[in-house]
Structures are given as C-alpha cells and as structure tokens.
Amino acid sequence: MEIVKENIVAVTPDNFEMEVLQCDKPVLVTFYANWDQPCRMQQPALDSIADKHPEIKVCKLDVEEYTAFAQQFGIMMIPTTIAFKNGKKVKRATGLRLENVLLNMVQ
C-alpha cells in the first residue's frame, strides 16, 4: 500500500463527493498509479503544497484501483491533476507539473 501523508487525502469513489465536491477549500486531485515513475516524481510537489498551503486540500486517487471512476473524468494519462472549486472542475493539468504550476491552478 502507498503511504499517503496525513495531510494528503486518499480519495475513493465513496468519499469523493464529501472530500472533493463538498469541500469549501480549493481542492487538487492527482490521479496516479504507484508503479508509474512520473507519478512518483510528482509526489514531492504535492507533499510540499500540502505542508505549505493549509488553505488548499490535496488529494490523490489511485487509477489502478478505481479505473472506471477515473474514466468518468476522462483520465488517459498519469499523472493528471484536476483542480476543483465549489464542487466544480476549474483546471486540468496532464503529466508531471512543477509545484508553482499546480498552485496556480487553484489561485
């Protein structure tokens, strides 16, 4: 099992509505797979955002475990990060992105 830091939320189809759509903070959801090298390299930027920006909620969704759910978001490349505000998708970034690029998606 992947170790997810306590300030990063592992989202699933069951808690997605509550953790992401109902959240009153801006949310970044990174769709990832454990075995994928670019996804592993994306992790430090996510950790850093979660540590430095309590006003942003950082979430991860395992596309291998929840493939059908990820397909609903049209995920065909990993990592893909989608920014949500007030339950709506606002931005989408595909591939590994720098920390400031991810931050800009919710600012």
Binding site: Q37, P38, C39, R40, Q42, L96, L98
Partner: peptide
Amino acid sequence: RKIGAAVD
C-alpha cells in the same frame, strides 16, 4: 517525460 523529470 518517461522518467518523470520536470519539463517546463
């Protein structure tokens, strides 16, 4: 890209 090196 294949190894996850950041590209800008």
